[in-house]
Simulated assay, not measured.
Amino acid sequence: MNPSMHLVYLCGEYPPASHGGIGTFTRAMAHAMTARGHTVTVLGVQRGLTAVHDARDGLVRVLRLPSRGGGVGVLADARALGRALAAVHTQQPVQLVEGPEGAFALLPLPRGVARVVRLHGGHHFFAHLEGRPLRHGRAWAEHRSLRRATHLCAVSDFVARTTTALVPAVAARPVTVLPNPVDTLQFAPRPDVTPLPGQLLFVGTLCNKKGVRELLQAFTAVAPQLPQATLELIGRDSRDPATGGSYGQAMAALVPSALSSRVRFAGVRPHAEVAEALARATVFVFPSKAEAQGLAALEGMATGTACIISALGPGPETAVHEESALLVDPTNVPALAAAITRLLTDAPLRARLGAAARARCLEHFALAQLAPRNEAFYARCVADVRGEVRGEVRGG
């Protein structure tokens, strides 16, 4: 085990706040690092707060600051976060600070501290995958943040390669690939849970890039021939870019009235309920069109549920087609419908894929495997920065 370090994660969506994959990742890694003897502080600004919240999540200190919102509030938020970081550093010296792509753009940072940007999929990445124009301010912030980082890592080889191609600040720099970890104790086969025959499950934000529209179209195509088939969608709603209203409501309107009783929009659910829902499902479907490394796919695989996941992006890194999942182009609705029909009607295939998916997660994506790899990476980052500081002192 490496010498004890004080690690700071910059995260404005730490659970139980409304969160996505970054919040889930941060909580899992923070607890894994404290279990390995390190001190961990999570710092973030969060909308809706009227005062500073300084609390404990087990051994992890979580410091949440009220956000002033967009515009000039962005600079005010960065300065407030910088003051909080300086205070934390004074109380107990920090060896390493980690954040996502844009985290270091405006943040005042203490000298001599390793600065890690973890590529979870930033503005350049998702704008490129979704065919959206770059927003000047966000693109500038991402460039500046990446230049200020002392070290870079990425949750998949796909996000590393794509970001390297898009952002000059990354192009000539090494990027260490450290896959998203899944808690294989929480997400595990559940002999005590009775699967629901024909139950399809989706977990993720209800939005276009997650393939929700294509999933509903595929379900509508196969449901008349599969009378037991039902579909449950767990996840937070988003804004429909076409109307400005609820994306979930727009998708619900696409379901024919004859099938509406067989489609359930379950909303946001606690992680424990998601784990149970995965164990209860016959097939997990994650047809995302734009991912850095989908945690939901890993959680489905770790549960031992037969999975259909996207063949795009990091899909081939996540699972092997026909071996540990069925990989499908999510933009191909007939292919998605065929994969759903195939798994719902072939119990031996489901059992084989589910067992292989669980085994693959234990070998490649388990938190127990990835925590020491991340710890070793952090230790190298800290050693590199200490060496540079010592070199400056000797040279001065």
Rank of each mutant, 00 (worst) to 15 (best):
N2Q: 14
Y14K: 01
P15C: 04
H19C: 15
I22N: 11
T24C: 02
T26H: 06
H31G: 11
H38T: 12
V40W: 13
T41R: 10
V42G: 03
R47P: 01
R47N: 13
H53A: 01
G58V: 12
R61D: 14
V62Y: 06
L65E: 05
L65H: 06
R68N: 06
R68W: 02
V72H: 12
V74R: 15
L81G: 03
R83V: 07
R83D: 14
A86W: 08
V88I: 12
V97K: 01
E101A: 09
A103C: 09
A114M: 10
R115L: 15
L119K: 08
G121M: 11
H123S: 08
L129T: 02
P133V: 07
H136V: 09
H136M: 00
W140L: 14
W140A: 12
S145C: 13
R147Q: 09
R148S: 10
H151M: 04
L152E: 07
A154W: 10
S156R: 07
S156F: 10
D157G: 13
T164C: 11
P168R: 11
A169P: 06
V177A: 11
V182Q: 08
T184F: 12
L185N: 09
F187D: 07
A188I: 02
P189N: 03
P189L: 11
V193S: 03
G198W: 04
Q199F: 03
V203C: 11
G204C: 04
L215M: 12
L216W: 04
A223Y: 10
A223T: 15
A229Y: 06
L231M: 11
E232N: 10
I234S: 09
G235Y: 05
D240A: 10
Q249L: 08
S257R: 14
S260D: 14
R264C: 07
R264N: 06
A266K: 00
A266H: 09
R269E: 15
P270K: 12
P270L: 10
A275E: 06
A279I: 02
T282Q: 10
V283I: 12
F286T: 01
G294S: 15
L295Q: 01
E299P: 07
T305G: 00
T305H: 00
A306K: 03
C307F: 00
S310F: 11
G313N: 15
G315F: 03
T318M: 15
T318V: 15
E323Q: 14
E323N: 04
S324Y: 05
A325M: 00
L326T: 11
T331C: 09
N332R: 11
L336W: 14
L336H: 09
T345D: 05
P348V: 00
L353V: 02
L353S: 03
G354A: 01
A355V: 02
A356K: 02
A356P: 00
A357T: 05
F365Q: 04
A366S: 15
A366F: 03
Q369K: 13
P372L: 10
R373Y: 13
E375V: 13
A379K: 02
C381R: 05
V382F: 04
A383F: 12
V385N: 03
G387L: 09
R390I: 15
R390S: 13
G395F: 03
G395E: 01
